[in-house]
């Protein structure tokens, strides 16, 4: 069926005559990867802002702020990377974040006292709440065979609605002060704790995806779920774990948000899901599944973050950031597409 279109497509451009060897080949392969492209774009953006406003932009203080602001989204996007590599999607992350924050804050207030005991109980409750939503997503996707887009759209509504219901629509205040002063704004050797948490999540996520059986299963299911099943992978169980991971990380992002702002942010996360998906795709992960890296996602998270920051420093309307990110998204995916088509032609010959 597809052969008919490929015949015409293959005539347009001759494929690579022969495989170049050695370092140049490795370099060439690197250069055609989407992640490399987007990483170069990121470097270009950083260099551009540094050239224009070195004094304000290229400071430790500023980078610390950018990293701290991006920490929540990065944590969510790591989970989203796993989900998208399985060819799934999770629209519920922003709502789950809010829900987890609300549960954690309520538990902390209910225990009271403001000690570390209350804080720990609240954090555990928040993480469990996030994971629970993830399990619900995973079970509905695998056992009920509802498309992930619909499942997570449904749980998006339910998680946010539940959070609103529990709080009456008013943000919960009065979480123990220690949470904010330590995890929220505290630093270790000049690095904010929230950045350390996000970096740790990213590192663990990257290792898990690239070096463990869990990661291999994730890729295998995304490439071909049926083949993975026949190879003896328990696909349903693995998918439930992946969605649970996404829910857990959304919960963790909720804890980070709670610690930073000392309050739940019910109204502030309605676009987190799409921001995370955009970051993941920008990082070279394919929505068709089977392809993607956590490091790419890191690049994808920081392009919007740095653009936003740089535009504010330059005095440009910060909302141009969204326009720019939209354009970069299209360009990155288009280059990826061209590359993949060229590759297919190459394989065919």
């Amino acid at each position: 069926m597809s052969d008919l279109t490929e015949v015409t497509a293959a005539d347009e451009e001759p494929a690579e005559a022969s495989e170049p060897s050695g370092v140049r080949a490795a370099l060439r392969r690197r250069l055609t990867e989407t992640t490399t492209w987007t990483f170069l774009i990121l470097l270009g953006i950083v260099a551009g802002f540094a050239a224009l406003r070195f004094q304000q932009f290229a400071t430790v203080f500023n980078f610390r702020n950018i990293a701290a602001d991006a920490s929540g989204l990065l944590i969510i996007a790591v989970g989203m990377t796993f989900v998208i590599i399985t060819a799934g999607i999770d629209l519920s992350v922003g709502s789950v974040l809010v829900f987890s924050g609300v549960i954690a804050a309520k538990v902390m207030l209910a225990i009271g006292g403001g000690g570390w005991g209350a804080i720990a109980a609240g954090l555990v409750a928040g993480l469990v709440a996030g994971t629970a939503w993830g399990v619900v997503n995973g079970v509905l996707v695998t056992k009920a065979r509802v498309p992930p887009l619909i499942v997570t759209l449904g749980t998006l509504g339910m998680a946010l609605g539940s959070a609103l219901l529990i709080t009456g629509g008013i943000d919960v205040r009065g979480v123990p002060l220690q949470l904010t002063t330590t995890i929220g704004i505290g630093q270790l050797a000049g690095v904010p704790y929230v950045v350390i948490i996000a970096a740790a999540v990213t590192a663990v996520g990257a290792v898990t995806l690239s070096m463990t059986r869990f990661g291999r299963y994730t890729y295998a299911i995304g490439s071909n779920a049926e083949a993975a099943r026949r190879a003896g992978i328990n696909v349903d169980r693995h998918l439930i774990k992946v969605y649970a991971l996404s829910g857990f990380l959304a919960g963790m992002a909720g804890m980070v948000s709670l610690a930073r702002f000392a309050t739940t942010t019910i109204g502030g996360h309605s676009t987190d899901n799409l921001a995370a998906i955009a970051a993941v795709v920008l990082g070279g992960t394919s929505l068709f599944g089977g392809i993607g890296t956590v490091l790419g996602t890191v690049v994808g998270v920081f392009i919007p973050a740095i653009l936003q920051n740089g535009f504010v420093i330059l005095g440009v309307q910060p909302f141009w950031q969204q326009v720019a990110v939209g354009a970069v998204l299209i360009i990155a995916v288009y280059i990826d597409q061209l590359k993949r088509r060229a590759q297919e032609r190459g394989e065919r010959r």
């Binding site: 955009a278 990110v325 354009a327 998204l329």
Partner: peptide
Amino acid sequence: LAMLLAARG
């Protein structure tokens, strides 16, 4: 999704 970001911006 890209157009969502661009149009909103």
